Simulated assay, not measured.
Amino acid sequence: MDWHLLGISFITVFLAEIGDKSQLAAIALSGSSKSPRAVFLGTIAALLLASFLGVIAGEGVAVLLPARLLKAIAAIGFALIAVRLLWPDTDVQEDLEEKP
């Protein structure tokens, strides 16, 4: 097992998940529940399952498609998202202009 990769993955996911909506849901559920341990175990199980499915799906896609094609698809996807975020939405601007 590559311990360095394990550590980097853990730190990255841990930092990304702090303040995430799953954390807020766990806080809300544990505050109103009589069994915070059950909320903790359910939250951990859900996060593990979601991560496991993500790894399995990522490996499956990596086996089917070459790395260069995956990088190109990711780059195009991020570029489209960037253009969409920067492109002004005329419907929203018209709605804002109509409201007093």
Score class of each variant (00 low, 15 high):
M1W: 02
W3T: 10
H4M: 14
G7Y: 05
I8W: 05
I8C: 08
I8A: 00
S9G: 09
F10M: 08
T12Q: 10
A16S: 13
E17S: 07
I18F: 01
G19Y: 01
G19K: 00
D20K: 01
D20L: 09
K21Q: 13
K21D: 10
Q23L: 11
A25C: 05
A25Q: 11
I27D: 00
L29P: 00
S30M: 05
S30Y: 10
G31Q: 10
G31N: 12
S33M: 07
K34N: 12
P36A: 00
A38C: 07
F40S: 03
L41F: 13
L41R: 15
L47C: 00
L49Q: 14
L53P: 03
I56S: 07
A57E: 12
A57R: 07
G58Q: 02
G58E: 06
G58T: 00
G60R: 05
V61S: 13
V63D: 12
V63E: 15
L64F: 06
L65R: 10
A67E: 15
A74Q: 01
A75M: 13
A75I: 14
G77I: 08
G77W: 11
I81E: 15
I81H: 06
A82Y: 02
L85T: 04
L85R: 11
L86H: 06
L86V: 10
P88I: 08
P88Y: 05
D89G: 06
Q93P: 02
L96Y: 13
E97T: 05
E98D: 12
E98S: 08
E98Q: 03
E98I: 14
K99H: 07
